[in-house]
Design a protein around this nucleic acid. Structure first.
Length: 271
DNA sequence: GCCCAGGTATAAA
DNA sequence: TTTATACATGGG
């Protein structure tokens, strides 16, 4: 990976495809916002971050080389060649080729596991604009100020809340699920960090101990929060597509990159 | 008003 | 083990 640091801006040369719009709007994250100058900003961890793409140079503003190497490389998965993975997946399922060509700019972010878990609990039976609204109110209420925004609230902070406390979020029936997750995580009944290396089947079962976490939310948490790229979230549409257009296709044939194949299939189904 | 949104818990077959 | 329903809320 080639990069240079200039005035606290890291410039990374991207050799494969990386599309910020696709990456931030594919439903894997809910806090990145597009600015008028085509850059994107979000609070990630306890940092307000702005990024942009200039030709093949990916720029991360207001950071240091140390931060970049310790954090952003893995957050944006910069050491992985997504073109190679696309080819690998299309070889196993040629039907993906057309969609893969138009959506291969998606990278799987390595987000904070708690934020991902909580966000995907909120996402169930919900639409993206409303999911973003609920998360925004959640951060304003229970996060801490960070530049012009707020951090994502810790599990510990939310574990003390009651459903009445969360009523202003307008999260509906999901409020009680958020609290149960916050309690189990803050009390260390579920150790999210351990799930990075745990056997995937064990990790699924662990997550599903949380009230309100079923197979879909568990899989999204594994893929987007714990960066388990073999995880494979299946929603109702995908289930139908796998039964009809992708008859016989199972996550196993995509091996360790099933999660990325899943993104292609999702787009195939939607478009 | 009615329908749906990248689901899940619960109760029945 | 599989199949129906309610669930909170808001936008189309």
């Amino acid at each position: 990976m080639n990069y240079i640091v200039n005035n606290n801006v890291v410039n990374v040369k991207i050799d494969d495809t990386f599309d910020l719009e696709q990456t931030f709007s594919c439903g894997q994250c809910f806090r990145w916002e597009k600015n008028t100058d085509n850059s994107f900003s979000a609070v990630v961890g306890n940092t307000f971050c702005t990024v942009r793409m200039n030709d093949n140079i990916f720029q991360i503003e207001n950071t240091t080389e140390q931060n970049f190497l310790n954090y952003w490389v893995s957050y944006f998965d910069l050491n992985r060649n997504y073109n190679q993975i696309r080819d690998f997946l299309c070889e196993r399922c040629p039907k993906l080729q057309k969609t893969a060509d138009s959506t291969s700019g998606i990278r799987i972010l390595s987000q904070d596991p708690w934020e991902a878990l909580c966000s995907f609990i909120i996402s169930q039976n919900n639409n993206i604009p409303r999911i973003k609204g609920i998360i925004d109110r959640l951060c304003r209420q229970y996060g801490t100020p960070c530049d012009s925004s707020y951090t994502f609230p810790s599990a510990q902070a939310l574990s003390k809340c009651t459903v009445e406390d969360l009523a202003p979020l307008r999260a509906g029936f999901r409020a009680k699920y958020i609290i149960d997750a916050a309690q189990k995580v803050s009390e260390n009944k579920i150790n999210l960090e351990q799930l990075r290396s745990a056997d995937i089947e064990t990790a699924r079962k662990e997550l599903m101990q949380i009230n309100g976490v079923g197979p879909k939310v568990a899989e999204c948490t594994l893929l987007y929060g714990l960066h388990r790229l073999e995880a494979f979230p299946i929603d109702v549409w995908m289930k139908r597509a796998l039964a009809e257009e992708f008859k016989g296709i199972t996550p196993e044939i995509f091996g360790e990159y099933a999660g990325i194949a899943q993104q292609y299939i999702f787009h195939y189904v939607r478009n």
